[in-house]
Design a protein around this nucleic acid. Sequence first.
DNA 1: GTGAAAGCGCTAACAA
DNA 2: TTGTTAGCGCTTTCAC
Lengths: 339, 339
Amino acid sequence: MSQKPYTIIDLARMLGMSKSTVSRALRDQYDVKPETREKVLELAKKLDFETNTLAASLRGNKSYIIGVIIPSFAIPFYSIAMGGIQAAASENGYNVMVCQTGEKYQTELDTINFLMKSRVDGILISLSKDTSIFDHLQRISKRGTPVVMFNRVSENLDLPNVVIDDYDASLMACRYLIESGCRRIAHISGPQSLILSQNRLNGFTDALYEAGLELHMNHIVESDFTLESGKMAARQLMSSAELPDALFCVCDAVAFGAMAVIREIGLRIPEDVSVMGFTNEPMSSIVSPTLSTISQPIETIGRTAVEVLLEHLNNPKSPQNRHSVVLGTELIIRESTRK
Amino acid sequence: MSQKPYTIIDLARMLGMSKSTVSRALRDQYDVKPETREKVLELAKKLDFETNTLAASLRGNKSYIIGVIIPSFAIPFYSIAMGGIQAAASENGYNVMVCQTGEKYQTELDTINFLMKSRVDGILISLSKDTSIFDHLQRISKRGTPVVMFNRVSENLDLPNVVIDDYDASLMACRYLIESGCRRIAHISGPQSLILSQNRLNGFTDALYEAGLELHMNHIVESDFTLESGKMAARQLMSSAELPDALFCVCDAVAFGAMAVIREIGLRIPEDVSVMGFTNEPMSSIVSPTLSTISQPIETIGRTAVEVLLEHLNNPKSPQNRHSVVLGTELIIRESTRK
DNA sequence: GTGAAAGCGCTAACAA
DNA sequence: TTGTTAGCGCTTTCAC
């Protein structure tokens, strides 16, 4: 059944010319008589010929594929970022191979391995929350495959990365909460293995500090960015002796979960508790009350990561050293926080 | 910088044996003296050798890659389905190459082309809403690359597919609304180019019909599955002369958008208007009021699509004819509908 | 402007 | 058990 695809040799035979000529005609790059090219393209179209990129990549030692490693498609940040990544890649003649790690270090390792075996030209990665060793990335970078980290990066790695200023965004958001009169602000943090989570936490504690507010250690509870973990953290916080009057959440999903819990126990948002998210997912303007949050340029983060990678791909001599692109954020005030 | 990766020839040279022996040792498949294999594996590990799968695929005429085409990662259904797809694929020794069409027919075409050039072993596809011609799928299937459709399928194609019974699920959901006392039920439908949307619409109209309820044509408004389109459709419906007392939505995102609009105009859910979604996204149990909806086994749909594809991959002789796997759904009643 | 030939890295007959 | 050899389909010198 499975009829074999045509090759340039088939075309050459049918047209009575050499396969080199066919190859040249197919990519308009070398000098080929227009008439010849015409004939080749016509037959190729007629037969539905498709260049075998496997062979071309093998021969050319270049696959025009960018490997992308993300924790999970189910995190809206990444499904949106993928839009920017795919767009930027395809605008530059590259294609994308995405893999999710499910937040597991071992899977991240396997994935890197798979992408290297597939001879991708470069790798974009957002670290799994379980990743605390970074040899695998250092190694592939040293071996000549450029790596760019985005969003979830490591400071232990001398690699280019694309991020936002998490600390600063956090600081601004918490200052706003304080100015609006909140005094017992709690934080649902992200996994502390991630710099991003650490920075958001630091912005939070520093804002309290500069306002002279006391920091209760049991007002910091860790989540893993999911709705469910947000609920659990909120339940814990809302049953503590000193009831918080504001929840600053590491991401919108966690904030959504927290809001559900606050409602469950019969408190009002924002009258009793202000809630602040982080990321500005589409749903944040839909939930009730609408969620105050920090907007990140997600698609741009994706696009930029691709651009930084392509820069290295195009100038192989340029050393792959640490070099952060920091994109801006914006505080979005909606209904879930007091005025 | 970019030092060339080691090849089996390099290993063979270093070990003083032939490249075939190295090749055999690397995949424990042929008879190789355990001692020899040991030596090969040891050196391979030491040098971080990675088989060039490009070359292996070219030679073996098999890539162990499944191409997946979806409309958009940003539709939660697909980001969840990808979990099932990747899991099932990797359990069977396959990898996945995902591409999104952005709902554009032309992109779908380009994507198929790209996947064919990459010599994927098979394709899983959920049609773009713009796709009304199906030659491209028929063609690749005829040429020996198995294709399985899932979720968004076409009836004009003689290909296997994995779906739910949209008509039946819709009928049940609307019957429930009617039994709960709703009399002026409106429907925010999906793009009518998709069978899935047609079936959900038909379930709706038939439920009204069997209950002897009148069907107002201006109580059917089309959306494109997005939050924003849900809002627009709801605005239109909620300003019609005959105000609906229930909204049956083609998907949860549309329902979320509709709920926001109903709140905006000061009506209560479900006292004034019941809202029913479709899919049971994680957010549906978080929004307020929580959303009544129809639960689909999303991950299983993904897994099953892979399994059906693998069946064809493993029995190339088996003809690729129409063959639907229909998975079950469940009506989930929460707070957004009257009792 | 076109053809001949070498070779990318691998696997699989076929020999030994 | 291992080696030799012939390609998989393509691109790219190097001739002509």
